[in-house]
């Protein structure tokens, strides 16, 4: 069994990778996947802590995260499809309606 610290380290690396995908990639779908990766990183640490403290609450929480992820992907993809219909692109720098 590897030390908990190593597990948490891998989880945080995955999280940072996901965050980078969100920040750097122009393709909205890849951004969405970055978010999924971040959620997965969190899940990993949940499961790890759950194992080390022998507490099943972590599993339940992971289940919740699954639901959130599923909903988020469902709505996210719906938004992407709508945007694509409107703009014919999935490039995030085309969507700057937040300005003003």
């Amino acid at each position: 069994m590897i030390p908990l610290a190593h597990l948490v380290f891998f989880a945080s690396v995955l999280f940072v990778l996901g965050a980078l995908a969100v920040v750097l990639r122009r393709n909205v779908i890849v951004v969405l996947m970055g978010i999924e990766l971040m959620l997965n990183a969190v899940n990993l640490s949940f499961i790890g802590f759950s194992r080390y403290f022998a507490d099943q609450a972590g599993h339940v929480f992971v289940l919740m995260v699954f639901v959130v992820a599923a909903v988020e992907v469902g709505v996210g993809i719906a938004i992407i499809v709508s945007l694509f219909k409107l703009r014919h692109t999935v490039s995030i720098d085309q969507f700057d309606q937040l300005r003003n």
């Binding site: 779908i29 969405l32 996947m33 999924e36 997965n40 899940n43 499961i47 790890g48 759950s50 194992r51 972590g58 599993h59 992971v62 289940l63 699954f66 992820a69 599923a70 992907v73 469902g74 993809i77």
Partner: peptide
């Protein structure tokens, strides 16, 4: 390997199976 067998199965079914397929 961390003892979360059910979560492992869900991970495959929901994430790899459903979400990623949708993407």
């Amino acid at each position: 390997m961390l003892g979360a067998h059910l979560m492992a199965v869900f991970q495959v079914i929901i994430y790899a199976g459903a979400i990623m397929v949708l993407v």
